[in-house]
Design a binder for these strands. Structure first.
Length: 254
DNA sequence: CGTGGCCCCTGTGGGC
DNA sequence: TGCCCACAGGGGCCAC
């Protein structure tokens, strides 16, 4: 979408949303986007002169690519204007997300990505077993812990656990080998389907093209507490596990 | 070290 | 109708 475009200038409307070395705060001005990288939930724009900017959307953040001149929505914190008259905008009402500057992509990998677990979109059974270790914490909390596995959020944790028929409260260290395999497979599958669907629009999330994510329509348990389990018909249960709303089937997920 | 709880922030929807 | 409060898709930090 932006590959190859050259950044004419970057404007920061809220300084505290941008973190990292101030020497890199030109934010790729003058550079063409050589590549766009991702690890877990973090994105990185890499410039053709070696510069690097990473973006995390947090809970309410989004990136949009629009024609220059289209009215900027509230909470537009950073705007990159390209030489071909488009704008990339970082918009984030709650500001749980942010933009980080780095000397280069190696610096980003060393400083931040090295502390993240393996990418969830390609997680293997062996990687999942390593993440679980002998932990007594719930499997749900392990799925949400980006230091252990990178890229799973609350919705997709619940959907993956339901597909695997594993209780969210189950101590992570107690999973069996077949369960590691099943859960890894469902995590990959749920994320692949969600990405193809453009993500989940619960309230106001939009894709960079302004479209609503359609995964919400095909989710099986998230946001459906009290509704019948799609598999057995028993009412879906809900509680707070790992400080997050969690929905599961108490019959199917033991 | 592992774990769980609290807090950051703003917008929205439901209940009264 | 309108107001207020609980809650929300994430994750850093702190105390234990």
């Amino acid at each position: 979408m932006l590959g190859g475009a050259r950044i004419a200038r970057a404007a920061v409307n809220r300084q505290d949303v941008v973190r990292g070395p101030s020497a890199s705060r030109k934010l790729l001005s003058g550079q063409a986007i050589a590549s766009v990288e991702r690890h877990g939930k973090q994105l990185a724009l890499v410039g053709d002169a070696g510069g690097c900017v990473s973006v995390h959307l947090g809970m309410s953040g989004r990136l949009e690519v629009v024609e220059k001149g289209s009215p900027a929505p509230p909470h537009t914190h950073v705007v990159w204007t390209t030489e071909d008259s488009r704008q990339l905008r970082f918009i984030d009402p709650r500001r749980f997300g942010g933009v980080w500057t780095h000397r280069d992509i190696d610096d980003l990998r060393a400083a931040r990505w090295s502390r993240l677990g393996p990418d969830a979109a390609t997680i293997t059974a062996a990687q999942l077993r390593t993440a679980c270790g002998n932990r007594t914490a719930s499997i749900k909390s392990v799925l949400l812990n980006q230091h252990l596995i990178a890229g799973i959020g609350n919705i997709y944790a619940d959907e993956s656990l339901f597909g695997s028929r594993i209780s969210p409260q189950r101590p992570a260290g107690s999973l069996t080998q077949p369960q590691h395999a099943a859960l890894a497979r469902h995590v990959r599958r749920v994320l692949a389907i969600a990405i193809r669907a453009g993500g989940s629009t619960i309230r106001d999330y939009r894709t960079p093209d302004g479209e609503r994510g359609s995964y919400t329509a095909i989710r099986l348990v998230y946001g459906r507490a009290g509704e019948p389990c799609p598999s057995c018909g028993a009412p879906l249960a809900s509680d707070q596990t790992a400080s997050r709303t969690t929905v599961w089937c108490p019959i199917c997920q033991q």
